[in-house]
Design a protein around this nucleic acid. Structure first.
Ligand SMILES: NC(=O)c1ccc[n+]([C@@H]2O[C@H](COP(=O)([O-])OP(=O)(O)OC[C@H]3O[C@@H](n4cnc5c(N)ncnc54)[C@H](O)[C@@H]3O)[C@@H](O)[C@H]2O)c1
Ligand SMILES: NC(=O)c1ccc[n+]([C@@H]2O[C@H](COP(=O)([O-])OP(=O)(O)OC[C@H]3O[C@@H](n4cnc5c(N)ncnc54)[C@H](O)[C@@H]3O)[C@@H](O)[C@H]2O)c1
Lengths: 211, 211
DNA sequence: TCCGGATTGTGAATTATTTCACATTCATTT
DNA sequence: AAATGAATGTGAAATAATTCACAATCCGGA
């Protein structure tokens, strides 16, 4: 029985924050940072930060701190963004086009290759440099352009159908913004992004506090 | 020492999911549902569901299940959406306008009253039924229209300034999409929405699985 | 080369969350 | 009115995540 190290979900979700802070430090020409400093800038405790990193290895220098460039590279590897990921977005509506045009993804090695939509009125147009294509072309496009991730920004009732299509096309990761659970085979990973949760969490806390 | 019941964060974030499933059941004219059924449709265990609800009271009927309409109303109250919340959005860019035009919020008693932007080229226009106003008008608008929540969809470097303005205007809740922490007084609640986290979580899992 | 100061890495303790399992309660039937 | 069956509500147990606290280690200076 070799014991598998299981990494807390919450640890993974903090890594992008550390990454961003390290990028800032790097731009500020800071080359060494302590866990105290990095943690404070990330909004967590320093023991939290050190424990998080310890799941993946030893990246610091005792008595000194962390080499910004080195840690940046390590986190890149952990998050899998040392390689490029290509995405397609299904649903060229309000949210889909906003995501497609977002410049922040490129900084993380994420490239939106195309948008797909069922509406002929949207097909053929360009969203910035990104083409909007008919849904029928999705499978071929994914295979030709070596796409790994599909983003779902269609209405809820269309989400399962789109997910099925993405699975058949061979996509192994789905980022789903539609407010429904979708069924996929075990070898496909679904990441849900439910924006209403954040707003209702705020609403809950506000109404508690105002009571 | 009266012991305060503390409600897990995760419980709050599941309530919107239960709410949505109950809405569906309600539309399907289902009037009674068991914790097994409701939990399965929400993607959680039934004991999880019952424990979550138990933090707020006893809403079910032993031996029978939950009255859909009654539970819906209770969750509405817990989430604070039995009353209307009015929001303003600062940053009428890609994401801000997508949010402003999203019809899903209205179903939860959330009304986007106006967008604000620093760019004179965007001011004066309408996004659907929602006006885009100059930043200078924010304070007056918030006070005149009894707004409670501010949404930040401006670039990261402008976020703190916008937050300061929102705090001065009297907003008590801020929903922040800019990828930076912001400093606010204790009586203001900030909910962070970091979309990159979701995508990088997916990237991490994908690259682990492919290794 | 050794010493002092600093900061990491990590077991252990604590705290938080989820799951278990069953006593309790309710609706229905006889 | 009592018996039956079903599903909730909830302490207790099990897991999971965070914080503590300090031994281990490294850097730089003497
Ligand atoms: N806009 C937001 O701010 C927001 C916020 C939270 C959640 N969401 C969710 O994101 C999704 C998209 O929202 P939106 O506001 O962009 O909607 P939208 O109506 O603007 O866009 C949806 C697009 O999907 C296309 N479409 C419909 N069925 C399709 C299908 N079967 N295959 C391919 N394309 C199809 C439509 O033609 C349209 O272009 C929805 O599920 C919504 O609930 C949106
Ligand atoms: N678009 C996305 O999909 C996406 C995804 C994740 C995060 N975000 C974050 O959301 C924010 C907005 O992104 P976007 O893509 O909509 O950008 P955008 O450039 O399309 O829009 C930003 C808007 O803010 C306005 N603005 C700039 N400074 C301002 C100020 N001081 N006061 C008021 N308005 C100001 C600009 O005029 C512009 O209209 C950014 O912080 C971005 O990192 C966006």
């Amino acid at each position: 029985m070799t014991d598998v190290v299981v990494i807390p979900r919450a640890t993974i979700s903090r890594l992008p924050v550390y990454f961003r802070v390290l990028m800032e430090l790097s731009h500020m020409e800071v080359s060494l940072v302590s866990s105290d400093e990095l943690a404070a800038r990330s909004g967590v405790s320093s023991s939290q930060l050190r424990k998080d990193l310890s799941y993946f290895g030893e990246f610091g220098i005792r008595g000194a701190g962390y080499d910004v460039g080195f840690l940046l590279q390590k986190i890149r590897e952990i998050l899998g963004i040392h390689r490029e990921w290509r995405l397609v977005i299904a649903g060229a509506g309000k949210l889909g086009t906003a995501l497609a045009r977002y410049s922040g993804f490129a900084q993380h090695g994420l490239e939106v290759a195309a948008l797909f939509d069922i509406d002929p009125g949207k097909q053929g147009k360009m969203t910035g440099k990104i083409p909007v294509l008919p849904m029928e072309d999705l499978t071929g496009f994914v295979q030709e352009h070596d796409i790994q991730i599909g983003v779902i920004t269609v209405p809820a009732q269309a989400a399962q159908g789109v997910a099925d299509l993405m699975v058949r096309a061979g996509l192994k990761g789905i980022w789903n913004f539609a407010p429904v659970r979708i069924e996929v085979p075990d070898d496909v990973i679904v990441q849900y992004e439910d924006l209403v949760v954040g707003l209702l969490t705020l609403s809950h806390h506000l109404s508690r506090r105002m009571r």
